[in-house]
Amino acid sequence: MKPSPIPSALLSSFTLLVCVYLVMPTLAVAPLSITRTDFVVFPPQGFSLRWYEELFISDAWRSAMKNSFITASLTTLLATPIGTLVALGMARLRGSLLQPVNVIVLLPIIVPSIVIAVAMYGLLARANLIGTIPGLVVAHTVLALPFVVINVAAIMRKVDHRIEQAARSLGATPLKAFRLVVLPQLMPGVAAGALFAFLISFDDIVIALFISGVGAVTLPVQMWSGIRFELSPVVAAASTVLLAISCLLMILLRWVRSR
């Protein structure tokens, strides 16, 4: 006897409605960015792209976008190799050490961001890195590292380590066996981890509020300031651009995983 398709259809419909409910407030930002009025109003009155023009012409907004891209790119370049090496090391751990190390690596996900921000502020202040891009990169690397480790570790579980042993038995050095045999198999996880690291850094607001100061304001911090002091449609335009970048990177992540 075949199971009735009605419960499955009801569950799918309910899931779809919940997803639409969660996504709609985010998508509503896009219409707000094309209004002709000088304030945020829904539904938008008229059609104008002047707020996008303001976004890309204003020195403050352009500087914030540049800082975000530089910080996210440097964070990706730093977090990806470190996270990959940590995942490789964890894969070789055995016994009672594995669980404590796993917890330590995942702490930036477990601990609230505000706690990490306060801790990083005290550390970076002593190093005179508050209000600098290097300070942001260090803080965001700590935040993004677990996501790289998780993605690389997930791929490592599928890797047949006998291939590396075969390469070693044929005369390959440990470095050459890793570069020619292991790393190509890990590349989907490495690429996914790199994309996650970029997104985590680019979208972060909590840690950036503590670390950026006035010398390294990122796009989320600039948006926060715009919401606090002037609710201008240019904030909606920046939100739409940020949403588009995040969606494109997630599509790229899905394509990488499918490959």
Rank of each mutant, 00 (worst) to 15 (best):
N67F: 07
N67E: 07
N67G: 07
N67L: 08
N67Y: 08
S68M: 00
F69N: 06
I70R: 03
I70T: 07
I70L: 12
T71K: 00
T71I: 03
A72N: 02
A72F: 02
A72I: 01
A72M: 03
L74Q: 01
T75F: 01
T75V: 08
T75W: 00
L77Q: 03
L77W: 03
L77I: 10
L78T: 13
L78W: 01
A79F: 05
A79V: 04
A79T: 04
T80N: 13
P81A: 11
P81R: 10
P81Q: 12
P81Y: 08
P81M: 10
I82W: 02
G83Y: 04
G83T: 04
T84E: 10
T84D: 10
T84N: 11
T84W: 09
L85W: 01
V86Q: 05
V86Y: 05
A87Y: 01
A87W: 00
L88A: 07
L88H: 06
L88E: 04
L88G: 07
G89E: 10
G89V: 10
G89I: 09
G89R: 09
M90D: 13
R92Y: 10
R92K: 14
L93F: 04
L93I: 02
L93P: 00
R94Y: 06
G95R: 05
S96G: 11
S96Y: 07
L98I: 10
L98R: 15
P100Y: 07
P100L: 08
V101Q: 01
V103L: 14
V103I: 15
I104Y: 12
I104H: 12
I104N: 12
I104C: 14
I104M: 15
L106T: 05
L107H: 05
P108V: 08
P108N: 09
I109F: 08
I110S: 09
P112Q: 05
P112G: 06
I114R: 00
V115P: 08
I116Q: 10
I116H: 07
I116G: 08
I116T: 14
A117I: 10
A117C: 13
A117V: 12
A117D: 11
A119L: 04
M120L: 15
M120Q: 14
Y121M: 12
Y121A: 06
G122Q: 14
G122K: 10
L123A: 15
A125N: 13
A125H: 15
A125W: 14
R126Y: 01
R126H: 06
A127P: 06
N128E: 13
N128Q: 13
L129V: 03
L129F: 03
G131N: 02
G131V: 01
T132S: 13
T132L: 02
I133D: 04
I133M: 05
I133A: 05
I133F: 05
I133W: 04
